[in-house]
């Protein structure tokens, strides 16, 4: 089902992930966040941007365990916990944050 961003229609798959990750921008992220019922704070953006950088480097969206460890290393130990990430993204940090970041569903996510 496509989403509408600033009058432009952008294709998503049946679960709401972007079909084309190059169609992403911050406005797209906000609309995707809306569909997840999330209000984007700076803390949300930090994780979304972190995921985009991770994807850029490794060409995959990381599993939650890997994301948690990597966030802890990069953004500080207090943020590298599943509690912190689940508070920001209640339906799963990898799943929900990846969707907002315009990435494919994480490998191994069911």
């Amino acid at each position: 089902m496509p989403i509408e961003v600033n009058g432009v229609s952008i294709a998503t798959d049946e679960e709401g992930y972007l079909e084309d990750l190059s169609a992403w921008n911050e406005d797209v992220a906000k609309v995707l966040a809306d569909t997840e019922g999330l209000d984007m704070s700076n803390d949300h953006w930090e994780i979304v941007n972190f995921l985009r950088e991770y994807y850029e480097e490794y060409q995959i969206a990381p599993a939650v365990r890997v994301l948690t460890k990597a966030v802890g290393k990069k953004l500080g130990k207090e943020k590298g916990t599943s509690k912190y990430l689940y508070e920001l993204f209640p339906y799963g940090p990898a799943k929900q944050a990846c969707k907002i970041a315009g990435l494919p569903k994480p490998t191994g996510c069911v």
Partner: peptide, 13 residues
Amino acid sequence: KNFSPTYTALGDY
């Protein structure tokens, strides 16, 4: 898609 970079993520896993 070039998946060489993905092998470098194996350490994270």
